[in-house]
Computed example of a mutant assay.
Amino acid sequence: MQAKERREAIVEVVRLKGPVAVAELVERLGLSEATIRRDLVKLDDAGLLKRVHGGARPVDVRDDVYADLVDRQAEPKEAIARAAAARVRDGQSVLLDIGTTVGRVAKYLHGRPITVVTRNLAVYAELCEDPVVDLVLLGGQVRPAHRSLVGYLTEESLRQLRADLLLLGTSGIRRSGHSVDTVTEEVPVKRAMISAADEVVLLADASKFPGSGTATVCDVSAYRHLLTDRLPDGETSSVLHHAGVAVELVDTAPVS
């Protein structure tokens, strides 16, 4: 069983059964105790479950924003993630933002000779054991419910970096073209990521027009490409066109 499959199976058992002992996971999954314990550390770090003495328990679903959002608009997010990963060229350095769309990009980057810099703990969990990808995890304060790192340490780390490409998530895109967020703590980190990248690609499924959020991250001049599954309304499309933003519509048909 591959690491990704193992960890998905562990998370599924914990979600279905609630608190579970390491011994039960060993019996159910046919894995060694050492493997289970290592995987629990990784999954706890990624905010996918909580380690407790002798086992693990589910995260508090009332506070687990990421888990609540991850399956919403699943097909468009998957298509956008595939298209975003295809934009990354071998040898490039790419910044991956937080969010459930950007988080899906990571699985399409396996085995690529690239540098991935991220504060997204879901990305870290996906790529941490890849022997080819050069993975850089930014420092900062952990926000488990959002699978993110924020704060001064994150911003300061970004000031020391330069990346070829930023794949940027968003809570919403206003008709003015402004990208907004629902969480004010995310804004300075997102701005630092924009400043650290040569090229910015915004990822936004159709539900992000206008989406939610009142904290302005950037105006339309900050990004040059938008990946989405459906054209936004006429006013927003006009603003994007006049600002020179290239809008790429992705194919949401399932890949056979």
Rank of each mutant, 00 (worst) to 15 (best):
M1F: 12
M1I: 10
R7H: 02
A21T: 13
V22Q: 11
E24W: 13
L25V: 01
E27R: 15
L29H: 11
A34E: 13
L43T: 04
R51L: 00
R57F: 00
Y66M: 07
A67I: 12
E75Y: 14
E75S: 15
P76G: 01
K77T: 09
A79Q: 09
I80W: 11
R87K: 08
R87F: 03
Q92M: 10
G99W: 10
T101S: 04
V102Q: 09
V105E: 01
Y108F: 07
L109G: 04
G111D: 01
G111P: 12
R112F: 03
I114V: 08
V116S: 03
V117P: 09
L121R: 08
E126P: 15
V132H: 02
V132I: 07
L135I: 02
V136E: 13
L137D: 05
G139R: 07
H146K: 13
V150K: 06
G151T: 04
E156A: 07
L158R: 05
A163K: 05
H178Y: 12
V180H: 01
E185H: 14
V187N: 00
A196V: 02
L202M: 03
D205H: 10
K208C: 00
G213I: 01
T216R: 14
S221A: 02
A222N: 05
H225I: 15
L226F: 00
R230T: 06
H242G: 11
V247C: 06
V247Y: 06
E248H: 08
L249T: 03
V250E: 06
V255P: 10
V255H: 10
V255I: 00
